[in-house]
Amino acid sequence: MNVRRNRLVSLAALGLVGGLALTACGGGSGSDSAAGTGASDNGGASAGAYAELSGNIAGSGASSMQNAQTAWSETFMGLVQAEGGDLTVTYDPTGSGTGREQFLNGEVKFAGTDAALDEEELAASTAVCNDEQAFNLPVYISPIAVVFNLEGIDSLNLPPAVIGGIFAGDITTWNDPAIAEHNPDVELPDLDIVPVHRSDDSGTTENFTEYLSATAPEAWTHGPIETWPIEGGQSGDGTSGLISTVEGGQGTIGYADASQAGELGTAAIQVGEEFVEYSADAAAKSVDVSPRAEGRAENDIVVELDRTTTESGVYPIVLISYLALCGSYADSAEGEAVKAYASYMVSEQGQQTALENAGSAPLSAELSAEAQAAIDGITVG
């Protein structure tokens, strides 16, 4: 069986067997909140809580969570319709940078971003958030896969310094001794390596280069960046564009949310003395061993990923896609709709939906409870 199909089977099994008891509280802070406070199977809402939801709410941002957002919005709108509500939720996978810009310009009511809103962006958010500051919530945890297109090769072992050297343009052929050393049983071709990067401002790029900067600073000297720093080379717009470019070449290599790796070859990453393939379990472990970012408000939940951990079974190239929300919404109907949708995303049903459709790692019970408490604190009207 194909290696990636095996991993997908294991991802589904993780969701069914792990039984993470995610908090399923409602999103309302008042007695007439649209999300209510009683738990049920409807992604955390009490019976009838969605009946009053109507109108349209739009979000944009990280293309990494595109599959999850499609599944979330379609399922959530079905739940709302079943209870008599009439709400449309849309999400445009414009990329993290554009999503944050549109959110801060008031063009969308929420944003998805692989890089949390920073201090300057949080300060600017009061202009569109009813004089309250925005905040970040983790909603989507996923490995970033190093994907490649080499005929007949499904998997390669790659240390951080080799990955950094490849994307910096210093390791240029697939049979380079630095690659061959860690893949003695693979017949590597005498073929040019063609690195592929994101052409847009990308949180996935920032997470990927943050990993390279932390683990292979001598090979990757450009630091953690959201916009690719090396001129030339092949590129793709958004996750789907990068994947398409890698698929369309031979000897190509790129980086993308693992949910969209498809049939491409993928790298096992060296952590300590072992090579670890991506999986939901290994991504979740990466978050578990990482501390919360310091100096942020209580409702602003940002994880400081430990890229250099050597703990067994951890896959360190992980992205956490955040949901950027306003602390207050002037329009009550819009605010209640956003709160209800956000509550669905962090609920047990919402996280299971993301696992089944995008292979993401469900939030832990503790992290989900913190996220729901922050949603409860949003004021409307």
Results as ranks from 00 to 15, higher is better:
Arg4Val: 11
Gly44Arg: 02
Asp200Arg: 05
Arg198Met: 15
Thr90Ser: 15
Ala297Arg: 13
Val338Met: 01
Ala297Ser: 13
Gly350Cys: 08
Leu22Ile: 13
Gly223Met: 04
Ile171Tyr: 07
Ala127Met: 08
Tyr211Ile: 10
Asp131Phe: 07
Ala337Tyr: 01
Ala82Thr: 13
Glu121Val: 05
Leu188Glu: 08
Leu8Asp: 14
Ala34Ser: 13
Ser96Glu: 00
Ala34Lys: 06
Ser202Thr: 12
Thr173Cys: 02
Leu325Thr: 03
Ser63His: 06
Gly28Pro: 06
Ala82Phe: 09
Ala123Leu: 10
Glu247Met: 14
Ala282Tyr: 05
Pro177Arg: 09
Ser332Arg: 15
Asp114Leu: 12
Asn149His: 10
Ser343Gln: 04
Thr23Cys: 14
Leu22Ala: 10
Phe103Glu: 03
Glu210Thr: 15
Pro195Ala: 06
Tyr341Glu: 08
Asn183Lys: 06
Ala342His: 04
Gln372Gly: 10
Ala374Gly: 06
Ser125Ile: 08
Val314Lys: 03
Gly381Asn: 14
Thr227Met: 10
Asn175Arg: 10
Ser40Trp: 04
Val289Trp: 03
Gly203Leu: 02
Glu247Trp: 04
Thr23His: 11
Gly350Phe: 05
Ser46Arg: 11
Ala337Met: 03
Pro138Asp: 00
Leu242Ile: 06
Asp32Gln: 09
Asp192His: 03
Gly169His: 00
Ser235Ala: 15
Asn67Arg: 15
Ala365Trp: 08
Glu83Tyr: 07
Ala361Asp: 06
Gly359Met: 02
Tyr255Glu: 05
Ala374Ser: 14
Ser279His: 00
Asp201Leu: 12
Leu14Ile: 12
Gln133Asn: 14
Gln66Tyr: 08
Ala49Val: 05
Glu226Cys: 07
Tyr344Gln: 07
Thr94Tyr: 08
Glu370Gly: 10
Gly327Leu: 08
His182Gly: 06
Tyr322Trp: 11
Asp32Asn: 12
Ser364Val: 11
Gln133Cys: 06
Ser368Glu: 00
Gly152Glu: 04
Asp154Met: 08
Ala371Ser: 15
Tyr50Asp: 03
Leu212Gln: 01
Thr113Trp: 02
Gly38Asn: 10
Gly238Glu: 01
Asp190Lys: 04
Asn6Trp: 14
Ser64Leu: 14
Ile163Gly: 06
Gln133Pro: 11
Val139Trp: 06
Ala180Phe: 02
Glu107Val: 15
Ile141Trp: 02
Ser155His: 12
Gly28Met: 04
Cys129Tyr: 01
Asp118Phe: 08
His197Leu: 06
